[in-house]
């Protein structure tokens, strides 16, 4: 079977596990919403909240990403499933792409809810003019996050102290996404007079990031999970 076929099987398996366990809906989404409410407590000013809402959406996404990635690989390591896949001769490229795809789908749902929460909680307004930019930002940033999440999740999987290792490894790497996606979202929402045209250069950065880690991950994933 080619890598793409494997990827689809792995992604479908991950999403099925998710659908049956409902961890994303029952635990991660409430966690992400809680983080949003905590931000509101900490910042304690309606105007400030509206101003920094795009950054908070992405910050909450990063924290939730950690939780989702931990979960995604906990499923694999619990019964030595990752090792079993490798012993069965399944190509690592397929596993990487499949897990990234499943992560992408879960993050997309999460971000949609977080953005909706921003509109309700932080009085963010989405204008028709910025919708294309907003959707492109989400697509590009989420793809990059899914690749990085899978790559470092695979590395930390099965390691001692992986809960603490993963944030240490992953957060510095996703910083460019946080910056780029925040700025592009600000442009799409017109925060502080920004216009959608200000956002497009950041899309370039986000796409470059996703492409580099997509290619890097495809090449490196096999060596990282090799036990």
């Amino acid at each position: 079977m080619n890598a793409w076929g494997i990827a689809r099987l792995v992604a479908a398996k991950d999403l099925r596990v998710e659908w049956r366990s409902r961890i994303l809906i029952n635990q991660v989404l409430p966690f992400a919403t809680l983080v949003r409410v905590m931000f509101a407590f900490a910042l304690d000013n309606d105007q400030t909240l509206t101003r920094v809402a795009p950054g908070l959406v992405w910050l909450a996404t990063m924290f939730s990403l950690l939780v989702v990635v931990q979960r995604s690989f906990a499923v694999e390591t619990a019964d030595g499933a990752l090792d079993a896949l490798q012993v069965a001769g399944v190509r690592a490229t397929g596993i990487f792409l499949g897990k990234s795809l499943a992560l992408l789908a879960q993050l997309a749902v999460l971000e949609l809810v977080l953005m909706g929460a921003a509109v309700v909680l932080y009085r963010t307004e989405v204008h028709a003019g910025g919708v294309v930019l907003l959707v492109t930002t989400y697509a590009a940033a989420t793809t990059g996050l899914a690749f990085v999440g899978t790559l470092y999740g695979g590395l930390a999987a099965g390691a001692k102290g992986r809960e603490t290792l993963l944030p240490l490894l992953m957060l510095p790497v996703v910083a460019p996404v946080l910056i780029g996606a925040t700025r592009a979202t600000e442009a799409a929402l017109g925060t502080e007079g920004a216009t959608p045209s200000d956002g497009w250069p950041w899309i370039g950065l986000l796409i470059l990031f996703a492409a580099l880690f997509g290619v890097g991950g495809t090449m490196a994933f096999g060596s990282l999970i090799d036990e």
Binding site: L151, L155, L169, P172, V173, A175, P176, I179, G180, R183, P201, W202, L205, L208, F209, L212, F213, G216, A220, S223, L224
Partner: peptide, 21 residues
């Protein structure tokens, strides 16, 4: 070794994004 190479990939990205930021 893979980690070290990924770090070299990351550093320019961080540098340029902060510079634009």
């Amino acid at each position: 070794a893979v980690m070290a190479l990924l770090a070299m990939l990351e550093v320019p990205l961080v540098h340029f994004s902060v510079k634009w930021w």
